[in-house]
Computed example of a mutant assay.
Amino acid sequence: MAIWNLGSINADFTYRVPHLPTAGETLASTAMSRGLGGKGANMSVAAARAAAHVYHIGAIGSDGVWAKDRLLEYGVDTRFIAQVEHSTAHAIIAVDEGGENQIILHPGANHHVPKDLILSALSQANAGDIFVTQNETSGQIEAMRTARSMGLRTVYAAAPFDVSAVAAVKDLTDILILNEVEAEQLSSAMGMPATDLGIAQVVMTKGSKGATVYENGNHFDIAAIPVEAVDTTGAGDTFAGFYIAGLDRGMPAQQALDLASLAAAIMVTRVGTADVIPDLKDIEDSRLR
Rank of each mutant, 00 (worst) to 15 (best):
G191C: 06
A165S: 14
T212Y: 03
Q102A: 14
G217A: 09
K206R: 15
I104A: 15
V163H: 11
Q201A: 12
D196Y: 06
P193V: 03
A168E: 10
I118F: 03
I130E: 02
Q201S: 13
L122S: 05
I199S: 01
N216I: 01
H111W: 09
Q185S: 13
A147W: 01
G108A: 03
Y156M: 14
S187D: 10
T137V: 13
T212S: 14
I225N: 03
D129G: 07
T133Y: 06
M192N: 09
I225Q: 05
G236K: 00
F220N: 11
I141A: 11
T154Q: 09
H111L: 14
A200W: 01
S164F: 07
K206M: 15
Q102G: 12
A200Y: 04
T232F: 07
I222R: 14
H219C: 14
I104S: 13
A158W: 01
A245F: 03
A125T: 08
A157V: 13
S188K: 13
G241K: 02
A159R: 01
A121C: 13
D174Y: 02
S164V: 11
I199Y: 00
A194Y: 07
L152R: 05
I244Q: 08
V155I: 12
A121P: 03
A157W: 00
V181M: 10
S164T: 13
F161D: 09
Q201E: 15
T238V: 10
L119M: 14
E184G: 10
D196H: 12
H111N: 14
K170I: 08
A147I: 04
V155R: 06
N126M: 12
H112W: 09
V113H: 01
D171M: 05
L105N: 07
E215S: 14
L172Q: 08
P160A: 07
Q134G: 08
D221Y: 04
N218W: 01
E182F: 05
L117V: 10
G128M: 09
I225C: 04
E184D: 13
H106T: 14
L178Y: 04
A189I: 09
A157H: 09
E136N: 10
M144D: 00
E142K: 12
I225D: 02
M192Y: 03
N179C: 08
L178T: 04
T146H: 10
M144H: 02
A127F: 08
A143I: 05
L178H: 02
P226H: 06
I222G: 12
A223G: 12
L152Y: 05
H106D: 08
H106W: 08
M144A: 09
L172R: 02
T133L: 07
A229G: 07
K170N: 05
G198P: 06
I130A: 04
T205M: 09
N110Y: 03
E215G: 04
I104G: 10
I222Q: 13
L176V: 04
I225G: 03
G234E: 08
Q134A: 08
M150S: 11
G234F: 06
G108T: 02
L197N: 07
A194S: 15
H111P: 05
A189M: 09
G108W: 00
A127C: 10
S149I: 09
A240Q: 01
K115G: 13
G108Y: 01
E180W: 01
G139L: 06
G191E: 04
D116G: 07
L122E: 03
L105H: 02
I175Y: 05
R145A: 15
D116H: 12
V132T: 09
V163M: 10
G151L: 11
G207E: 11
